[in-house]
Design a protein around this nucleic acid. Structure first.
Length: 423
RNA sequence: GGAGAGGUGACUGAGUGGUCGAAGGUGCGCGACUGGAAAUCGCGUGUAGGUGAUGAGCCUACCGAGGGUUCGAAUCCCUCCCUCUCCGCCA
């Protein structure tokens, strides 16, 4: 959520952001509601002031044993009017807040303006798109052949879009999780967290999934809880509503979580095998930092995610997203695509974003600057470090051998009892 | 799930209808004292909104959240949430 004062002072900046991001938001309604609200507040507060002053007078009169019934009668009326004003204020504020939640974050000045994903800009590439064999088969074929991926069983249990890993496949999944967590905690200075995999409505609003993505999440109506679509939700909400001591910053958290996505409306696109599934594992990284450092922290966050792919020997490219492809809450975002030889595609498997104070304002994340001063909002960042399912795709497709086996990337072997090849 | 206790500012802890945004203490900041420090003393120290010049000042709101009663609520009533203790159930 943006600062209302900022919107009031910079309506054209916000209007441009809404257009550039391809969002819809009633900015003009918001501004007129804001004006209406402030006018009403002034009237209401004047009456409240009167009530407070008179109440003191009544208290004094009563203490002296005098009769105050005339004043009380008068205040009865004032209170009734205050109630009317407050009801109006509540109504206007409700509408205003609803619109405010639909106003997207303003893209950073370094973000290219563009309509959609075709206008994202590749900023660097690493490794050569390659494979051990000339024409590797897609992961769903070799996965089933080797008996490590059971798509049928997954859909038998929970419907299409759910998968089961078996044997060495499950072991590979677990190895990847452990490898990534170890890397981020040992080498990159993150604190490991094992959070809840469900979150409540406030948490979802805090990170910006709500109100926009309600239909994309699994929801338990009895408890009004959502299955998390990303580890970003619990990690960013760890300190919701707190004012942190400045000397604790930057806070860097990493967590393994499954991610649940209904993927409503995305039928038919990249749906085979593991490319788009309703549940996948991910290791997430989240940072809470001082505003001045957040763009440097974005670079190092992205580098932390890239390191995973470098160590796995998977070729990738890093794109800076254009305004039209940038998510609602983000000010700037790098996507990392891995090359997968079997499907001959770049697969998005990490997004590293700086939200500036957009999430922090929603979630009430502040800090006391070291050396005093007013509490300020932190900047929040998050990045996948990285998404498991598509990493598995890339490993199965890029590491195929002539004999139909899969070479296990060296860094994973210690996590798989030294296994060098999946046969 | 049942019974009970409780949720007050960075922390601790008073406060059961009126001058309480909230005593006292701790912590923190500034100053005095000191060669320096400790101790001591003095002053200050929440958040948000409105109004004003993004100043001073003034006003309003906030004592878990939301409603209600009342001229007036941290204080009374209702609903919900959370924490603790005991019982039950269960991985």
């Amino acid at each position: 959520m943006l600062d209302l004062k900022f919107i009031r002072g910079n309506p054209e900046v916000v209007r441009k952001a809404i257009i550039d991001k391809g969002e819809k938001a009633d900015l003009d309604d918001l501004l007129s509601l804001d004006e209406d609200l402030r006018k009403t507040i002034v009237e209401s507060e004047a009456l409240k002031n009167e009530r407070n002053v008179e109440s003191e007078k009544i208290a004094r009169l009563k203490k002296e044993g005098a009769n105050a019934s005339a004043e009380i009668e008068q205040m009865r009326e004032v209170s009734a009017r205050i109630k009317e004003f407050d009801e109006k204020i509540g109504g206007v504020r409700g509408k205003l807040d609803a619109i405010l939640l639909t106003i997207p974050n303003v893209p950073h000045e370094s973000v290219p303006v563009g309509r959609d994903e075709d206008e994202n800009v590749v900023v660097r590439e690493w490794g050569e798109p390659s494979s051990l064999v000339p024409t590797p088969v897609p992961h769903w074929e070799i996965g089933e052949t080797l008996g490590i991926l059971d798509l049928k069983a997954g859909s038998r249990i929970a419907g299409s879009g759910f998968v089961a890993f078996t044997g060495a496949g499950a072991r590979l999944e677990r190895a990847l999780i452990a490898f990534m967590l170890d890397l981020h905690t040992r080498e990159h200075g993150y604190t490991e967290v094992s959070p809840p995999f469900v979150a409540d409505r406030d948490a979802m609003v805090g990170t910006g999934q709500l109100p926009k993505l309600e239909n994309d999440m699994y929801h338990s109506p009895e408890d009004d809880l959502f299955l998390i679509p990303t580890g970003e939700v619990p990690l960013t909400n760890l300190h919701r509503g707190e004012i942190l001591d400045g000397d604790r910053l930057p806070l860097k958290y990493t967590a393994y979580t499954p991610c649940f996505r209904r993927e409503a409306g995305s039928y038919g696109k990249d749906t085979r095998g593991l490319l788009r599934v309703h549940q996948f594992d991910k290791v997430e990284m989240v940072k809470l930092v001082e505003p001045e450092t957040s763009y440097d922290e974005l670079e190092s966050l992205t580098a932390n995610a890239e390191k995973v792919l470098q160590l796995l020997g998977l070729p990738y490219r890093v794109k800076v997203l254009c305004t039209g492809d940038l998510s609602f809450s983000a000010a700037k975002c790098y996507d990392i695509d891995v090359w997968s030889a079997g499907v001959s595609q770049w697969l998005e498997l990490s997004s590293c974003s700086n939200f500036e104070d957009f999430q922090a304002r929603r979630a009430g994340l502040k800090y006391h600057p070291v050396g005093g001063g007013k509490a300020r909002f932190v900047h929040t960042l998050n990045g996948s470090g990285v998404a498991m399912a598509r990493t598995v795709v890339a490993i199965l497709e890029n590491y195929q051998t002539e004999t139909g086996t899969i070479v296990v990337p060296e860094v994973l072997r210690p996590y798989m009892d030294g296994l060098e090849e999946i046969t």
